[in-house]
Amino acid sequence: MSGDILKRIAEPSLQVVGYVVLAVMFLYILTPLVWMFLTAFNPEGGPFLELPKEFTLDNFVMIFTGEPIKGRAGAAHPFYMTRWIQNSFFIASVALLLVVTMASMAAYSLSRLDFPGKSLLMTFILLIGFMPSMAKILPLFKLCLMFGFVDNLFGVAVVIASSILPTQIWILKGFFDSIPRELEEQAWVCGCGRFTTLMRVVLPVAGPGIAVVALLSFLGAWGSFTIPLILIRSEDLYPISLGIASVFIHNPGEIGLAVDYGPLCALSIVYAIPSLAIYYLTRKYLMQVRLGKMEVR
């Protein structure tokens, strides 16, 4: 009886505490982002949270045209926003295509084929992906010099794709494994060719997996910083990540000094929009990634 009362009091209060903690977490997550959003539309934004007195699009105009805003000094460095966006889009879409094609081919093959040493190969792929990037990224410069991949957007995309590939093969193999082979066999019995089966039966069922892989590889390539930092030397070919760094990088510890906050926030928003858009398109599938298959050690 007393336990019952305790429960009746404890349950709702627990819920209240839970919601309070949740609210604190939301504040922690959202406050920095809210500042970014407000400051992008603020004609005189500073490094502090405040509601803009008037609403302006000048900052967005500024980052695309490079025209300094009236009454303020221009950025120390010129903006090449359109070119950065083009470069980033090129890198991200080439990397996405490469990863989706290569990973789905490899994962399908690994899922349907049995051969001696298969688990060894899977472990090898996992280990390659797990190698810290600092343990392979420095010689990449020399390797890419040999291939002519330094200062080459396609080369950068290939290198990024190769670094994303291992995990994506594992994720996709999980999805292909969950499609019973009988389903395919039935399709063959009914007179579908191998290829038609692949296109009409397997790919639609593995669709969510491919969507997740597309999302993850786009996010990875669109936001990539270290690999372009090492492989791209000329400013013409900067993706947005390097572009932002070139405009707003500051001396050690000088954050908050001599930075034009409005354009910075506008640029950040423009940079984030494609990532958010592709997340929005694929969000339904993201939670379906079962990492259970990765538990095989």
Binding site: W35, M36, P47, I255, Y261, L264, Y271, A272, S275
Partner: peptide, 12 residues
Amino acid sequence: IPGVIHPYVWIS
């Protein structure tokens, strides 16, 4: 959102 802008978002 891309990692490069995380430090900037935290300026405020």
